[in-house]
Write a protein that binds this DNA or RNA. Structure first.
Lengths: 132, 132
DNA sequence: GTAAACCTTCCAGTGCGCTGGAAGGTCAAG
DNA sequence: CTTGACCTTCCAGCGCACTGGAAGGTTTAC
């Protein structure tokens, strides 16, 4: 299977697949006599896994870690559980930050309704965004 | 006021202030005979404004837009209101995405409790993260 | 007088996950 | 036989907001 076929199967671009190889996520496949990459069918599974893990928000570095453990023959369960927990924490942290930002933006929007252009002196920048 | 003093006042690094000048957020100040930047006290206000606006999550490009309007002498109220609304939408969109990711991660975590290492055949990568 | 702290410019790199393009070789169809 | 789709490598850049460092000049404190 050549790279274009694999790309179509996995729903990625050929560029991305070469990039994953370079990044150590995908082993370098054998080549045809002409030098074309020639992938076994299992490569599609690996790419699907990468896609699923990336969709869950794991970084390529984290995915590489999981794959590296799997490639030793060990099931990566414990590592994956730890990773999921850590990532869940990061996501929750980020959600909390964004909720706070949302409250702040709603406050600014409220303020924008209350002050008119005439309320801003020429010396200040914007009474809505800052009192500086 | 020299750049280090301004940096300390504004809670930024001197590097960042030079970067803001380069990025068109802050006018180039006059120089001392030795070539040192010599800021008027108002520069601190402008930096405080930039800080507040950035804290609300606006990009430097957006902040530059607000400042550019203000620098024409116009109050930027209408522009700012529009900007806040657009940014609020982006934030809400992102929150929704992260909430979905959180649900997905909680599902994966649940699955991780249910499957053991023995459940993963050597041919698959990780039954927790993907069925590929 | 000298050492440390401060300033200047310029160039380069960070992290992340790709993407674009150039210059060339190969393969399949008509 | 040619056209066009496909493949190869390599190098560069994106967007974002800085940050680091080198190599040099200046000011300040003791």
């Amino acid at each position: 299977m050549r790279i274009g076929t694999l790309a179509a199967t996995a729903g990625l671009s050929a560029k991305t697949i070469r990039f994953y190889e370079e990044a150590g996520l995908l082993a370098a496949p054998p080549r045809t006599p002409a030098g074309y990459r020639d992938y076994p069918a299992e490569a599609a599974n690996r790419l699907a896994f990468i896609r699923d893990a990336a969709a869950a928000g794991l970084s390529l570095a984290e995915i590489r870690g999981v794959l590296a453990i799997r490639d030793t023959g060990q099931p990566p369960c414990q590592h994956v559980t730890t990773l999921i927990e850590a990532h869940l924490q990061r996501v929750e942290q980020r959600i909390a930050e964004l909720l706070a930002t949302r409250v702040a933006l709603q406050g600014l929007h409220q303020r924008a309704q209350e002050v008119g252009p005439a309320d801003c002196g020429p010396a200040e920048i914007c009474r809505i965004l800052s009192t500086a």
